[in-house]
Design a protein around this nucleic acid. Structure first.
Lengths: 125, 125
DNA sequence: ACTTGACTTAGAGTTTACTCCAACTGCTAC
DNA sequence: GTAGCAGTTGGAGTAAACTCTAAGTCAAGT
């Protein structure tokens, strides 16, 4: 697959794909004789994984670390597991925060709806 | 309250507090005769609100817009409600995404745990 | 051979949200 | 009255994650 095909399929710009590769999140992307990137199905899966994790707030630096561990082979299995577990933990924390903020927004919107009905009072903020 | 007191209480740096004020998220912070910021309890509540919303990913620009509507008075009640509702919606979407990613991480960690037990196989990534 | 369009690289530029700096002011304590 | 500290301002600097530009290459079509 060419970069533009992967770009469309994964909905990530070619620039970003090149950037991820430069940062070491995609080490083994092959090239044609002409030097053009030739992505495999595996590459795509990995890109989807990266996209998913980036969406959840994992930094490019952490993902780089993860894939660098990978390159060092089987003996880093535990380290990778632990890295993921750490990220999982902080994701869980952020999830709970977001849930609280969602409730707070719901409450605030309900206060607005009441104020709009009574057509009299203004709010503090 | 002085800026350093608020900074401690809200756990936000004085620089950030000044930055928020400059950006219009805190319009009416009073000053002493000497020109020193003098925060009220209301100001603190507002700062907590800003912190909470920033934590949930609302941009400084959106919050600025919200407080600018506020300055225009009661006739912007509906606009403010709608702004909050829009943000609530996208927060909800992100929350669902994060939940999916959390599950994915859980699964991946379980795969690692299996691989660690059997002590034989490597993973794709 | 020549144009066209997609691709390559290195490196510069952008955006967001801070964070830091320099130069200055105004209390408070000695 | 002056040292020291907390505060002020305007503006410069930073980090992360892209995003864009310039200059060039390559393969296909005319």
């Amino acid at each position: 697959m060419t970069i533009s095909q992967v770009s469309k399929r994964c909905n990530i710009s070619p620039d970003t794909l090149r950037y991820y590769e430069k940062e070491g999140l995609l080490s083994g992307v092959g090239r044609t004789e002409g030097g053009v990137r030739n992505y495999t199905e595996q590459d795509c899966k990995q890109i989807e994984f990266i996209k998913c994790m980036r969406g959840a707030g994992l930094s490019v630096a952490v993902l780089k670390q993860y894939f660098e561990l990978f390159k060092r082979g089987k003996r880093t299995l535990k380290a990778r597991r632990d890295l993921l577990a750490t990220e999982r933990k902080s994701l869980q924390v952020r999830l709970t925060e977001l849930q609280n903020t969602l409730s707070r927004l719901d409450y605030k919107i309900s206060v607005y709806d009441k104020a709009l009905k009574s057509k009299t009072k203004e709010l503090k903020f």
